[in-house]
Amino acid sequence: MSNPNINWAAIDTNPKFQALHRKKTVFLWGLMIFSVIYYFMLPIGAAYYQDLFKTKVWGVINVGILFALSEFVVAWTIAFVYSRKANAEFDAMAQEIINDVNNGSIR
């Protein structure tokens, strides 16, 4: 399995790898930044927008509770979105590169 003769620089400059790298970078950073912003909205909202958080919307349930619950839903959604994208797209792209390396088209 271990192959010491792999030309890593050649793979790195290969257009297929570059495409994978670009796609992954944009996608991962996008999700990461979104999730961090969404998360920190909770303590900030609870501290500085208390009137909004206290607004009752469904029986005794207020915006604050719904927002906290939405944090869970958003975290799960991010996990789901990422895994779908990675399973469908990134894995296939990586596999193609591995195949190219194994059959000698990248060296």
Binding site: A46, E71, A75
Partner: peptide, 21 residues
Amino acid sequence: GYDGFMYSVGWLVAYITVLLV
């Protein structure tokens, strides 16, 4: 009450970093 629940959120969100990077 509410603050305890809010406190739990960060412990889950932490796994997004683990997953993505």
